[in-house]
């Protein structure tokens, strides 16, 4: 049931001949209330799938923007359970937009894989991206997710050769997240010229839709990537809007949603 929310969304995108837009927002950033308001506003602002960042104290694949966002989320008192509650509240207003949690393994391991999967399914969460849990270490987590029909989304990267893609594709579902640059989030810029052949390779090896993220900041770049992939993920540029709003003493919610609108419009119209 829940996995089909992702499948249904990609089927719809295919029918509309366009790439999806996937905003990444950090849990509890800048506060629980505002984060919930942002979540609720995302579908209307053009989000096709939503990634919610799980705050972690030691996010080793994140650049400074997402590191700071995680710190704000933790400061706002967010926990794994708190994030699931947030999504459960969002689900009261939207039953169709897939929600994927993205974060690091330790809070999930600390919570217990089976307990996490069960409660995540109940909260209306559709999948998990665990940045530091490669396929080699994922057997127990994957089994727990499978039992609740949740997707454990895998990552592919510029360092993944064909043999590696086979390992990544094994037993995964939903979509593949292609990390477009070797590096941390929000620093290097993705290049459409190198992303296009990589996406084609990942699609062929896995048979799944491919979302591209890391290093996409502007509407122009998002549109370029949208022409060669199934979905475009933007994270750092959005959490930076929260940071800028805080600095300027402005409300964060409208600022983030306005940015989402600009980016999603660019993605939506990219193939016209």
């Amino acid at each position: 049931m829940t996995t089909s929310r992702i499948d249904a969304r990609f089927a719809k995108l295919k029918a509309e001949n366009r790439a999806g837009f996937v905003p990444f927002v950090m849990t509890g950033d800048p506060s629980r209330e505002e984060a919930l308001e942002i979540l609720k506003g995302l579908p209307e602002a053009g989000a096709d799938i939503i990634e919610v960042g799980l705050a972690f104290s030691d996010p080793m694949a994140e650049g400074p923007p997402v590191q700071r966002a995680a710190q704000r989320g933790l400061k706002a008192g967010m926990t794994l359970r708190g994030t699931m509650d947030l999504v459960a509240e969002f689900r009261k207003t939207d039953q169709d937009t897939p929600v994927i949690l993205m974060g690091y393994l330790n809070p999930v391991e600390s919570y217990g894989y089976a307990r996490f999967a069960k409660e995540a399914a109940e909260a209306g969460i559709d999948g998990l991206i665990s940045v530091d849990c490669p396929p080699e270490e994922a057997a127990d987590l994957a089994a727990a997710m499978d039992a609740e029909q949740l997707s454990l989304i895998r990552l592919a990267t510029p360092t993944s050769d064909d043999a590696r893609l086979e390992v990544i594709a094994r037993g995964t579902s939903g979509f593949i997240y292609y990390v477009s640059v070797a590096g941390v989030t929000g620093v290097k810029e993705a290049q459409a010229a190198s992303v296009a052949p990589a996406v084609a390779r990942v699609r062929k090896a896995t048979g799944l839709p491919v979302a591209v993220g890391f290093g996409i900041k502007t509407p122009e770049r998002a549109a370029e990537i949208a022409r060669v992939s199934d979905a475009v993920v933007v994270g750092s540029a959005l959490v930076d809007e929260v940071a800028a709003a805080l600095e300027a003493g402005e409300p964060a919610v409208p600022r983030v949603l306005a940015k989402v609108r600009t980016l999603s419009d660019a993605v939506r119209n990219a193939r016209n």
Partner: peptide
Amino acid sequence: QGRFGPYGGRFVPETLMPL
């Protein structure tokens, strides 16, 4: 697998796995 009983292993981002 580089494990000492349940400990150890390779919990790194996918970019690093080939390395």
